[in-house]
């Protein structure tokens, strides 16, 4: 079934040709943190939270193909620290008020903060000026929470065939813009589009959903993000 094997933290992992390190790790029940990656989307390589060492060199696991005999370091103190730093950067870059965010409890950024034990970012908050686009009848974009992961861009282009979203500007001015002058309401986006569904944070929200799931039963209330992948892991051989 598998074409070859490689190791992650010394554990032998089977892989198929063309599989990325992240996909092979998932199949083996090893959770590598990720934010901009989503199943069915081409990897974007934006967030770098999935950084691992491949034969000693940092690479993003979501884009890097697994190769025979490859030696991957993943759960090391150094890598954990870098990843946490990136998550903290994303928190201070935008304006994240989890206490009233509809995504709270189901938000992947927040869930990574929990999993990594971030109590408060070590970096100063940037408090940027950002806007909210509520022109669409069914979907809204709150740029305050956007982490520029590009999922909406890829989903709209590759899954919906619409190109509703695209990055504009560059550097720390980068933001997602929509394919019309007057805001999202002037595009052909529909609430059923993948682009409207796949945002990992509360930046693209379906209107009139609100706080649908009660606290305690939301996605990441009880179990850390990644648990579902780790649950797949075969019991470790004895002595390990």
């Amino acid at each position: 079934m598998s074409d070859f094997t490689f190791t992650i933290d010394g554990v032998e992992v089977p892989a198929k040709r063309g599989q990325t390190i992240l996909e092979a790790a998932d199949a083996a029940g090893i959770y590598i943190p990720r934010l901009c990656w989503a199943k069915d989307l081409a990897p974007g390589g934006h967030c770098r939270v999935c950084t691992v060492l491949v034969n000693g060199r940092p690479q993003s696991a979501c884009t890097h193909p697994a190769g025979p005999g490859m030696v991957v370091d993943h759960d090391t103190a150094e890598l954990r620290a870098w990843r946490k730093n990136i998550v903290e950067m994303l928190f201070v870059e935008g304006n994240h008020y989890c206490m009233f965010c509809e995504k709270s409890g189901n938000c992947e950024l927040q869930a990574l903060g929990y999993r990594m034990g971030m109590t408060t970012p070590k970096y100063p908050y940037m408090f940027p000026q950002r806007t909210v686009d509520a022109t669409h009848p069914d979907v809204m974009v709150d740029h305050n929470r956007c982490i520029a992961c590009g999922r909406c861009v890829r989903a709209s282009r590759d899954l919906d065939g619409k190109n509703v979203f695209q990055f504009v500007q560059r550097g720390h001015h980068v933001r997602v813009a929509v394919n019309a002058d007057g805001g999202l309401g002037r595009t052909n986006l529909s609430a059923a589009d993948q682009a409207a569904q796949l945002c990992p944070v509360g930046a693209i929200l379906i209107k009139r959903v609100g706080y649908a799931v009660p606290v305690g039963r939301r996605l990441y209330d009880v179990k850390p993000i990644g648990s579902e992948i780790e649950a797949k892991r075969a019991p470790a051989p004895s002595g390990k």
């Binding site: 390589g45 994303l90 550097g171 720390h172």
Partner: peptide, 8 residues
């Protein structure tokens, strides 16, 4: 601005 660590 593509990737988080460099951008931020």
């Amino acid at each position: 601005g593509w990737c988080a660590p460099c951008r931020i």
